[in-house]
């Protein structure tokens, strides 16, 4: 399934932008991390941000979700300017965010975690719950179990499931493969691919650059808070400089 997604990128990039970031300056308090970042995610696209530690990859994602100090530039989502809004507002636009750490409520049951994902709705959307359970059958089995007792892979699924409860147009995933056993990493990427195939745009930050770039439509290489390279995932993987400098040869 990964080959399909990597070959469809040429057409995808021409689609009207769902998320469009221009000249973004952003950081935390006084500390500026991002410097003039541009980034586009088309409707239904699969975009990965890779780069060395401390490059500001996660900061891009947090900026989109209103978790940083906005310092300049624009973030347009689905035609509306969202820069500087708070997460409680942004989630209503159709963006969901899965943080890297602490992305579940450990003392709540699996089902309650999912219910909290749909907090902004008046009632729990049982149909969405079913879709999430179809996508992650293990969560259905464990629905009355405390989330803190789930395994690492199951927690990651629960975190994504929680984010999918609102049927977002754009899913932000911060290092979904971090801390997973090697044999689970490919499975996790398969699942993300399936979510994307179902029509949800995915913006992904990854340490595991090779895996991420081989799956995505488009990749950004971020270095020291600036975009250094942008191309299809496949091209970036084959690019000699990118390989040497950022993918370990």
């Amino acid at each position: 399934m990964s080959t399909q997604t990597t070959t469809s990128d040429a057409t995808r990039t021409d689609e009207p932008g769902l998320l469009s970031i221009r000249d973004l300056d952003s950081g935390y308090g006084e500390l500026q991390v991002l410097n003039g970042v541009d980034l586009d995610v088309g409707a239904g696209a699969y975009v990965a941000i890779v780069g060395p530690n401390g490059a500001g990859k996660s900061t891009v994602m947090k900026s989109v979700f209103g978790l940083t100090t906005h310092m300049g530039g624009t973030i347009r989502f689905d035609g509306a300017e969202i820069a500087g809004q708070d997460p409680e507002t942004i989630i209503h636009h159709g963006i969901s965010y899965v943080p890297q750490n602490g992305n579940i409520f450990p003392t709540l049951t699996t089902r309650e975690n999912l219910e909290m994902g749909a907090y902004i709705l008046d009632s729990v959307p049982e149909d969405r719950m079913e879709i999430v359970f179809d996508r992650f059958p293990i969560l259905a089995e464990r629905q009355s179990q405390k989330a803190g007792t789930l395994s690492g892979g199951q927690r990651q699924m629960l975190a994504m499931g929680r984010a999918l409860m609102l049927d977002p147009q754009l899913l932000l995933l911060d290092e979904p493969s971090a801390g997973l056993a090697p044999d689970l990493v490919a499975e996790m990427f398969d699942r993300i691919g399936a979510i994307n195939d179902a029509g949800t745009a995915v913006l992904l930050v990854e340490q595991n650059a090779k895996e991420a770039l081989s799956r995505c439509d488009r990749g950004y290489v971020l270095v020291q808070g600036e975009n250094r390279y942008m191309d299809t995932g496949e091209t970036l993987l084959e690019d000699e400089t990118v390989r040497q400098q950022f993918l370990g040869g």
């Binding site: 965010y97 943080p99 409520f105 909290m116 907090y119």
Partner: peptide
Amino acid sequence: TKLGTAMRAMADNKDLARVSGIPV
């Protein structure tokens, strides 16, 4: 209740509660 679950969620992880859209 939804409110009670949200209270427990906040006790668990306030940051995640915020990004889940819970009005903290």
